[in-house]
Protein backbone atom coordinates (compact mmCIF):
# COMPACT_ATOMS: atom_id res chain seq x y z
CA UNK A 1 0.00 0.00 0.00
CA UNK A 2 2.71 2.46 0.96
CA UNK A 3 5.51 0.21 2.21
CA UNK A 4 8.04 2.03 0.00
CA UNK A 5 7.68 5.17 2.15
CA UNK A 6 9.82 3.62 4.90
CA UNK A 7 12.87 3.08 2.61
CA UNK A 8 12.25 6.59 1.19
CA UNK A 9 12.38 8.05 4.72
CA UNK A 10 15.60 6.14 5.39
CA UNK A 11 17.02 7.32 2.06
CA UNK A 12 16.35 10.97 3.01
CA UNK A 13 18.17 10.49 6.33
CA UNK A 14 21.15 8.65 4.78
CA UNK A 15 21.43 11.26 2.00
CA UNK A 16 21.69 14.04 4.62
CA UNK A 17 24.26 11.99 6.55
CA UNK A 18 26.24 11.39 3.34
CA UNK A 19 26.36 15.15 2.62
CA UNK A 20 27.53 15.83 6.20
CA UNK A 21 30.19 13.11 6.07
CA UNK A 22 31.39 14.25 2.64
CA UNK A 23 31.77 17.86 3.78
CA UNK A 24 34.02 16.64 6.60
CA UNK A 25 36.14 14.48 4.29
CA UNK A 26 38.55 16.98 2.77
CA UNK A 27 41.25 14.86 1.22
CA UNK A 28 41.19 11.19 0.37
CA UNK A 29 42.35 9.21 3.36
CA UNK A 30 46.10 9.06 3.74
CA UNK A 31 46.13 5.30 3.78
CA UNK A 32 47.13 3.86 0.47
CA UNK A 33 46.25 0.41 -0.67
CA UNK A 34 47.52 -1.82 -3.41
CA UNK A 35 44.48 -2.48 -5.59
CA UNK A 36 45.95 -5.26 -7.69
CA UNK A 37 46.30 -4.54 -11.39
CA UNK A 38 45.11 -0.94 -10.87
CA UNK A 39 48.20 -0.11 -8.82
CA UNK A 40 48.02 2.14 -5.77
CA UNK A 41 44.65 3.41 -4.62
CA UNK A 42 43.23 5.29 -1.65
CA UNK A 43 41.06 3.73 1.03
CA UNK A 44 37.40 4.09 0.04
CA UNK A 45 35.90 7.15 1.79
CA UNK A 46 32.90 6.42 4.03
CA UNK A 47 30.77 8.91 2.08
CA UNK A 48 31.20 6.75 -1.02
CA UNK A 49 30.13 3.67 0.89
CA UNK A 50 27.08 5.56 2.15
CA UNK A 51 26.30 6.43 -1.46
CA UNK A 52 25.91 2.71 -2.21
CA UNK A 53 23.17 2.55 0.42
CA UNK A 54 21.57 5.74 -0.93
CA UNK A 55 21.52 4.36 -4.47
CA UNK A 56 19.93 1.09 -3.35
CA UNK A 57 17.31 2.85 -1.23
CA UNK A 58 16.40 5.58 -3.74
CA UNK A 59 16.51 3.27 -6.77
CA UNK A 60 14.53 0.50 -5.11
CA UNK A 61 11.96 2.95 -3.74
CA UNK A 62 11.50 4.56 -7.16
CA UNK A 63 10.74 1.21 -8.80
CA UNK A 64 8.49 0.21 -5.91
CA UNK A 65 6.61 3.51 -6.15
CA UNK A 66 6.06 2.72 -9.83
CA UNK A 67 4.59 -0.65 -8.80
CA UNK A 68 2.15 1.17 -6.51
CA UNK A 69 1.13 3.47 -9.36
CA UNK A 70 0.62 0.35 -11.53
CA UNK A 71 -1.71 -1.14 -8.92
CA UNK A 72 -3.61 2.13 -8.46
CA UNK A 73 -2.41 2.64 -4.89
CA UNK A 74 -0.81 5.99 -5.71
CA UNK A 75 -2.87 8.64 -7.51
CA UNK A 76 -1.88 12.11 -8.77
CA UNK A 77 -4.45 13.88 -6.55
CA UNK A 78 -4.67 14.48 -2.80
CA UNK A 79 -4.12 12.49 -0.54
CA UNK A 80 -2.06 10.67 -3.23
CA UNK A 81 -2.38 7.30 -1.48
CA UNK A 82 -5.79 5.72 -2.09
CA UNK A 83 -5.64 3.93 1.27
CA UNK A 84 -5.19 7.23 3.11
CA UNK A 85 -8.71 8.44 2.21
CA UNK A 86 -10.42 5.64 4.17
CA UNK A 87 -9.66 5.35 7.94
CA UNK A 88 -10.05 1.54 7.94
CA UNK A 89 -7.67 1.16 5.02
CA UNK A 90 -5.31 3.73 6.51
CA UNK A 91 -4.76 1.58 9.59
CA UNK A 92 -3.99 -1.42 7.34
CA UNK A 93 -1.58 0.79 5.40
CA UNK A 94 0.23 1.91 8.56
CA UNK A 95 0.45 -1.69 9.79
CA UNK A 96 1.89 -2.71 6.41
CA UNK A 97 4.43 0.10 6.58
CA UNK A 98 5.43 -1.06 10.07
CA UNK A 99 5.93 -4.66 8.98
CA UNK A 100 6.77 -4.88 5.25
CA UNK A 101 8.23 -1.37 4.94
CA UNK A 102 10.49 -1.65 7.97
CA UNK A 103 11.61 -5.15 6.86
CA UNK A 104 12.50 -3.79 3.41
CA UNK A 105 14.59 -0.96 4.86
CA UNK A 106 16.20 -3.36 7.36
CA UNK A 107 17.11 -5.95 4.69
CA UNK A 108 18.66 -3.34 2.35
CA UNK A 109 20.64 -1.88 5.28
CA UNK A 110 21.72 -5.36 6.41
CA UNK A 111 22.97 -6.23 2.91
CA UNK A 112 24.86 -2.91 2.82
CA UNK A 113 26.32 -3.75 6.25
CA UNK A 114 27.61 -7.08 4.95
CA UNK A 115 29.10 -5.26 1.96
CA UNK A 116 30.87 -2.86 4.35
CA UNK A 117 32.36 -5.78 6.28
CA UNK A 118 33.58 -7.41 3.05
CA UNK A 119 35.09 -4.20 1.63
CA UNK A 120 36.73 -3.36 4.98
CA UNK A 121 38.30 -6.82 5.04
CA UNK A 122 39.48 -6.38 1.44
CA UNK A 123 40.96 -2.95 2.24
CA UNK A 124 42.78 -4.31 5.30
CA UNK A 125 44.15 -7.21 3.26
CA UNK A 126 45.37 -4.84 0.54
CA UNK A 127 46.98 -2.51 3.08
CA UNK A 128 48.70 -5.43 4.82
CA UNK A 129 50.01 -6.75 1.51
CA UNK A 130 51.47 -3.36 0.57
CA UNK A 131 54.67 -3.37 2.75
CA UNK A 132 55.52 -6.87 1.51
CA UNK A 133 55.45 -5.73 -2.12
CA UNK A 134 57.84 -2.80 -1.43
Amino acid sequence: MACFLVPVAEAVVTTVITKAVKSRETEPEALKADTGSFGMGSKIPFSRKLKWLNNMLWGGSALLAFEHVWHGEIVPWFPFLTAASDPAEASVMISEMATVGVSMAALVTAVWGVMLLVTNAMEKKALRAQPDSN
Binding site: M56, W58, G59, G60, L63, V100, V111
Partner: peptide, 28 residues
Protein backbone atom coordinates in the same frame (compact mmCIF):
# COMPACT_ATOMS: atom_id res chain seq x y z
CA UNK B 1 33.02 -0.78 -16.58
CA UNK B 2 35.69 -0.90 -13.86
CA UNK B 3 36.26 2.87 -14.25
CA UNK B 4 32.50 3.54 -14.10
CA UNK B 5 32.49 5.56 -17.34
CA UNK B 6 28.99 4.44 -18.34
CA UNK B 7 27.72 4.57 -14.75
CA UNK B 8 26.30 1.04 -15.04
CA UNK B 9 26.84 0.81 -11.29
CA UNK B 10 23.79 3.06 -10.77
CA UNK B 11 21.63 0.50 -12.60
CA UNK B 12 23.07 -2.31 -10.49
CA UNK B 13 22.28 -0.52 -7.21
CA UNK B 14 18.79 0.37 -8.40
CA UNK B 15 17.87 -3.14 -9.53
CA UNK B 16 19.45 -4.83 -6.49
CA UNK B 17 17.68 -2.40 -4.17
CA UNK B 18 14.33 -3.09 -5.86
CA UNK B 19 15.01 -6.85 -5.88
CA UNK B 20 15.66 -6.88 -2.12
CA UNK B 21 12.49 -4.90 -1.47
CA UNK B 22 10.39 -7.16 -3.69
CA UNK B 23 11.98 -10.17 -1.99
CA UNK B 24 10.61 -8.94 1.34
CA UNK B 25 7.22 -8.40 -0.33
CA UNK B 26 7.35 -11.98 -1.68
CA UNK B 27 8.26 -13.42 1.74
CA UNK B 28 5.30 -11.67 3.39
Amino acid sequence: DPKNEMKVGILCWMYWGASLMWLVDAIF
